[in-house]
């Protein structure tokens, strides 16, 4: 009796907690509402399963509790029941999986007109690199990193000329313009995480990862690191400003160019002798 009651209380309390929780998704600031929809859908489906299973469990405990007169029913298996349940579960799983895969498909295919911005992580700072107007991002490699070239931009790549380097400042993005975010690290694994964007991705040293996003509202957002990157991990913060085109133009005009940073040219001598490239 008590046990069945407690199971019921757990069920009701869990559902109520879900309905009235003060801890819920932050207001979204990107067009990844599809992710939110899938998340909500998953809550509905799993919530229904939770209620059904736990309620049935509690009812069983109540209804079939021991008494002197009771004797259990002997029934090794019921093929029909198991088949029905298997099919129902499969349907539920397909119902969850299909939207997830569709959303993932769009997640990994940035639109062709997306602007590019590279984000570089280093314990425990964020750096940003943007192509010049109409230009492209040059290659980069941790082996180029020097005091003058903290991002390791490849000085031999013509595309590197004119790349804008943001070292220590905030990152600005245009509102309602898709942007492909390229991610790289020059020491350990980091993760570029803005809760309001929903999207995130690890930043790997020695490789390049990416995701894309369209910011949908202007404002200032906090950038966090979401992959354990050493003892300073909680303090690896940055700031993202989403703003109108006009404000963005003003900001971009103030940014430093890679060639300007490297007037001294000292960084180029640092090319390490690491053997032949393929």
């Amino acid at each position: 009796m008590i046990v069945a009651g407690v199971i019921l209380v757990i069920l009701v309390a869990s559902v109520l907690f879900h309905l009235f929780t003060p801890w819920w998704m932050t207001p979204i600031a990107a067009d990844w509402s599809t992710i939110d929809h899938t998340l909500r859908l998953t809550f509905w489906v799993t919530g229904a399963a939770f209620v059904a299973v736990i309620a049935f469990l509690g009812w069983c405990v109540y209804r079939y509790r021991h008494s002197e007169t009771r004797r259990a029913h002997y029934e090794p298996e019921s093929g029909k029941l198991e088949t029905y349940l298997g099919i129902a579960t499969t349907i539920g799983v397909v119902f969850l999986l299909a939207p997830g895969l569709v959303v993932w498909n769009s997640y990994i295919h940035p639109p062709a007109d997306a602007a590019e911005v590279e984000i570089v992580g280093q314990q425990w700072n964020w750096f940003y690199r943007l192509p010049a107007e109409g230009g492209k991002l040059g290659r980069a490699d941790a082996r180029f990193v020097t005091a003058e070239n903290p991002l390791g931009v490849n000085p031999y790549d013509p595309n590197s000329k004119g790349n804008l380097i943001v070292n220590g400042g905030d990152l600005h993005l245009r509102v309602n313009k898709p942007v492909k975010i390229l991610l790289r690290s020059i020491d350990v694994i980091h993760n570029f995480y803005i809760p309001e964007f929903r999207a995130k991705m690890d930043m790997l040293p020695g490789s390049e990862s990416f995701f894309w996003v369209t910011p949908t509202r202007t404002g200032t957002f906090e950038i966090l690191c979401a992959a354990y990157c050493g003892t300073g991990h909680p303090f690896m913060r940055g700031t993202l400003v989403v703003e109108s085109d006009a404000d963005y133009e003003k900001w971009i005009a103030q940014q430093q160019k890679f060639t300007a940073m490297n007037e001294q040219k000292r960084g180029f001598a640092a090319l390490p002798a690491t053997g032949q490239e393929k």
């Binding site: 290659r139 490699d141 082996r143 031999y156 790289r184 390049e208 090319l271």
Partner: peptide
């Protein structure tokens, strides 16, 4: 595509 110490 993105890295390397030589000119592309």
């Amino acid at each position: 595509n993105y890295q390397g110490v030589k000119a592309p």
